[in-house]
Write a protein that binds this DNA or RNA. Structure first.
Lengths: 166, 166
DNA sequence: CAAGATTGATCTGTCAATCTTC
DNA sequence: GAAGATTGACAGATCAATCTTG
């Protein structure tokens, strides 16, 4: 990908680098663009329509699915792919907006439960149609059902590699 | 995706929302995970090996490809999918590290050229093998060549929709 | 005045350190 | 002491406002 002149052919360390072919490079650059622009497009829609970031929306959405609209902070962090620290800051902000409430687990004081409030649920209900419509128009409806199937499989495989590497 | 109870079937506004099916939802969630975790995995490798963020690496890489390792700020912004503002802050930092230099275009004072320095080029040369190796191991080598072809086409199609929507 | 670029204020995320509960 | 969670300081991104050149 970068232009490295003559050094490209030089072996450094133990084994020579297998550079990307032209086609691999092109595919990789397209994928990077999707990874950057797609979240951005969704952020814009959510911010405009509901004053929510992508991850904030998903926090509300995951809570709405939990029993009694409640999840432990650590569970919520995993479900939203956020660090516990990030989630803690984020939930504090949502709490100050009245969308979420926190309470210590009565059965075990080490856990904190995040609870979706009525206002939070209402905001989610109001913003979900617009968000889902956008996900459809930008992603789902642009792919055939066999492409979706393949995207599913490919994503799963990549995730396996990514998770294994960390 | 969120659990909306009875409201799910209620028509709000003009037309009913077409919710995602179970399979669409599953695929979408996997894709979101990839969009979050893949950049993170690459950031970690670059940060550890070269003290560069993903976008900083790409700034250096795009500059290395320009004639005389030079690009206008506005071109560089497009190539790296960054806003001009973000790029300006970022290049200022790279400049203070001696990896890039900025100079006003002598033929038209409105343009600023970013130039890759010797030190910047050396850092790129040193870090490229590790980065490419990681891109291969996490993405390229995990997919068959027909999958890569399909990923290429699908990404292109999605990008078209995303760009058209903004 | 339009386009390229920069700036400063503000907000968000990260990292390391800390606190609490079992 | 280990796991869950929070905190504060710092780094980086965004947005709106501004500056500059042609």
């Amino acid at each position: 990908m970068p232009r490295l002149n003559a050094k490209r052919s030089r072996t450094r360390g133990v084994s020579a680098t297998r550079w990307l072919t032209g086609e691999e490079e092109a595919t990789w650059r397209l994928l990077v663009q999707v990874m950057v622009k797609l979240p951005w497009a969704l952020e814009c829609q959510l911010q405009r329509d509901a004053s929510l970031s992508f991850i904030e929306y998903h926090v509300l959405a995951r809570l709405s699915e939990g029993r009694v609209r409640t999840l432990r902070m650590s569970e919520l962090a995993m479900l939203t792919n956020a660090s516990l620290s990030r989630l803690s800051h984020l939930v504090k902000r949502l709490e100050s907006r009245g969308l979420v409430r926190r309470e210590v687990d009565p059965t075990d004081g080490r856990f904190t439960n995040a609870v979706l409030t009525k206002a939070g649920h209402e905001l989610l209900v109001d913003s979900a149609p617009g968000h889902v419509t956008r996900v459809r128009s930008l992603v789902i409806d642009g792919l055939s059902s066999s492409e979706l199937q393949q995207l599913h499989d490919a994503s799963k495989r990549l995730l396996g590699r990514i998770d294994a590497s960390s």
